[in-house]
């Protein structure tokens, strides 16, 4: 009985419930007030944040007293939403590009030119491209508004992934059109558009889902790598108590998970649980997506046999 429940549906249910909870909770519940200290009368002891996990704060608080459970729940929707938007943008554009310019992507020279994406990681490309816009310091405020920041980030993140993905799709479509029935259809005189719609697309379709599942986890990894260098999707807020840039604090505007990880990285050696909580949440998300993709892939293999 248990075997029949597909891991894919379990994953879908989990993702949608996380998304649902994270949209509902911040609307119903106000953010817990920041407590500067706690005085225990019975033990006559004073406690200052970060508080460890307890019944009041399920996941504890950070050094400023911010409740981590609330932050994680609030950030879940942004994390999933940004990753979904980037994945869909990439899939859509590279699907169209890959099919329209199929011949071009299979060309030796063009695929040689696309080697740059094979050797230079996407995170580095995005960081390089966005560097003139985002590596400002505390004294020089960002000259972009919130929406401008978000839009240009999403555009560059989508653009960085299009070419390699379009190449993969073009190669898959090409290997599908090597089949005998496609050759037959060609001899019968059907146009290339007809062949694509009738013979290639039905086989390409399920593969695209597997591909977008992989892309999703890749995008999440990419977001984390960018966040390590303080490039948070949705903008960064820089505060500092000191004059030297070394002491700047970078915090996310949107509580998005990868941003939280990077923000709390300093706590790693002081209070490991503060950083480990977003890391575990993020890891579980990636695991969930990967298990979904694996089960999709397996059901695809089974279909191919029959």
């Amino acid at each position: 009985m248990l075997r029949k429940i597909n891991a894919f549906y379990v994953g879908i249910v989990m993702l949608t419930s996380i998304l649902f909870i994270s949209i509902v909770i911040p609307n119903l519940m106000p953010e817990p007030a920041i407590e500067q200290f706690r005085y225990h009368f019975d033990q006559k002891s004073l406690e200052i944040p970060p508080f460890s996990p307890s019944s009041d704060n399920w996941f504890g608080t950070d050094r400023n007293g911010k409740d981590l459970f609330y932050a994680i729940m609030d950030g879940a929707k942004y994390t999933i939403f940004f990753a979904l938007v980037i994945t869909f943008g990439r899939m859509l554009l590279s699907f169209i590009g890959g099919l329209v310019f199929k011949r071009l992507f299979l060309n030796n020279w063009v695929s040689g030119l696309l080697q740059g994406f094979q050797f230079v990681p996407q995170s580095l490309i995005v960081l390089l491209v966005l560097s003139p816009l985002y590596f400002y310091e505390l004294r020089t405020d960002s000259f972009l508004s919130y929406t401008e920041t978000l839009v240009i980030q999403l555009v560059v993140l989508i653009a960085a992934g299009i070419f390699p993905l379009a190449k993969i799709i073009a190669e898959t479509a090409d290997s599908l059109s090597q089949n005998d029935y496609v050759t037959c259809a060609k001899h019968m005189g059907s146009s290339s558009l007809q062949i694509t719609i009738r013979h290639v697309l039905p086989h390409l379709w399920p593969r695209l889902f597997v591909l977008s599942g992989r892309q999703f986890s890749q995008v999440l990894t990419l977001m984390l790598h960018l966040a390590i260098y303080h490039l948070f999707i949705g903008g960064v807020k820089i505060t500092s108590g000191q004059v030297h840039d070394q002491f700047n604090n970078y915090s996310t505007v949107s509580n998005e998970w990868t941003g939280l990880i990077s923000m709390y990285h300093r706590e790693l050696m002081l209070e490991p649980f503060v950083v480990m909580i977003p890391v575990v949440a993020y890891t579980l998300l990636i695991l969930c997506v990967n298990i979904m993709t694996k089960s999709l892939e397996k059901s695809l293999d089974k279909q191919a046999i029959y």
């Binding site: 020279w109 491209v129 401008e148 240009i152």
Partner: peptide, 25 residues
């Protein structure tokens, strides 16, 4: 392939100037 790789790296390295100039996007 090596030649094309170098060309593509040059193309990538020059992209920032495609997006922004001194005054913004």
């Amino acid at each position: 392939q090596l030649f094309l790789l170098s060309i593509s790296i040059i193309l990538i390295a020059a992209v920032p100037s495609f997006i922004a100039d001194q005054n913004g996007i």
